[in-house]
Design a protein around this nucleic acid. Structure first.
Length: 319
DNA sequence: CACACACCCTGTTTGC
DNA sequence: TGCAAACAGGGTGTGT
């Protein structure tokens, strides 16, 4: 299901959970943690009590660092995974695979010269200096609200895991290339590596060790935008054409992000269960039989890599 | 090493 | 109508 823009929408939806404490975890289907090295009991035990940090993402991988530990809760949504935040009890989805019960701090303690003397589950004893220069110590109570985080996944290709952090990313993400929206993405290295490949350009775009975050939809959209045939041999791409393709990838992903991602049905939704709107803006994906928006000739679909490739045979020529 | 493919799963759509 | 095949946004392991 979800490609970079959809995963980024989910990441942003999880940001308000930073600082939350995991009170309990229920693995309802062990297939939800196939990426986790231990069993369900191990996953539940290690995650319980954890304090969640700021969610991060590379390509289609998402993770939430565990505060004070060198590990993260790793999330990959696969084809049909969803993360849903439930602040009130909701009907349980047939495909609910895992639930986490969180306590989210409702009040944020002010920053300042205060020194924390002791920290309990629901109160903090602090000392500091007041405005008149007089020392004080006081106990402030923290309120928590209960939030349930559900992992729903029809096809069970998605998975969660607790994964050690290696070189700043979860171990299972170390082989994944940076994505095109990452400020540290190296354009020239990408263009060089793309042109050095001896394969077809769409295969290369789907190779997450070359560039991450691109899936079948955005590959077709970017190739249409760059007027490039999906089976164009990479070794025959000019540097200019490769740069143009990278620009189209960024353009389509940024536009999709602004629309909340691409949804065809309820399988892709944000953390509140709502669909994105970018499907209205697609120009290639699933447009077979419809006129090309550039030249008016019918778009075609070819099966390729066991997936559909949608393109305009007139605008997107093999070179 | 780089590349191509089978496989993992469930639900919906398409075609005979 | 019923049934089977094809198809759906993913990553990974294996063989060449």
């Amino acid at each position: 299901m979800p490609e970079l823009p959809e995963v980024e929408v989910v990441r942003r939806g999880l940001a308000p959970l930073a600082g939350s404490v995991v009170e309990s975890v229920e693995v309802l289907d062990a297939r939800a943690i196939t990426r986790h090295p231990g069993d369900a009991a191990d996953f539940e035990a290690r995650l319980t009590g954890a304090v969640l940090g700021e969610p991060a993402r590379r390509g289609k991988f998402l993770w939430v660092p565990i505060t004070g530990r060198d590990e993260a809760l790793l999330i990959h949504l696969g084809m049909s995974g969803q993360i849903l935040l439930q602040d009130t009890p909701a009907d349980k989805d047939r495909h609910l695979r895992l639930s986490m019960h969180l306590a989210r701090p409702r009040t944020v303690l002010s920053e300042g010269p205060d020194r924390v003397l002791s920290e309990g589950a629901d109160s903090v004893l602090r000392e500091g200096v007041d405005g008149a220069g007089r020392p004080y110590s006081q106990e402030r109570f923290v309120e928590y609200e209960a939030i349930r985080v559900d992992f729903v996944d029809q096809r069970t290709f998605g998975s969660l895991a607790l994964d050690p952090i290696v070189d700043g990313v979860p171990e299972q993400v170390t082989h994944i290339a940076r994505d095109p929206l990452d400020p540290a993405f190296d354009d020239h290295a990408f263009i060089r590596r793309l042109r050095a490949k001896r394969t077809e350009v769409k295969r290369a775009l789907l190779d997450q060790t070359l560039i991450s975050g691109v899936g079948n939809i955005y590959a077709d959209e970017a190739l249409w935008g760059a007027r490039m045939h999906p089976r164009q041999p990479t070794e025959r791409l000019s540097a200019q054409a490769a740069a143009r393709l990278l620009g189209e990838i960024r353009l389509v992903m940024e536009r999709a992000l602004a629309e909340g991602g691409t949804s065809f049905d309820s399988l892709y939704v944000n953390v509140n269960g709502r669909s994105g709107y970018f499907s209205r803006s697609l120009r290639a994906y699933a447009k077979d039989g419809e006129p090309c928006e550039r030249c008016g000739r019918p778009m075609v679909r070819e099966t390729f890599m066991n997936r559909g490739s949608h393109f305009c045979a007139h605008c997107q020529r093999l070179r």
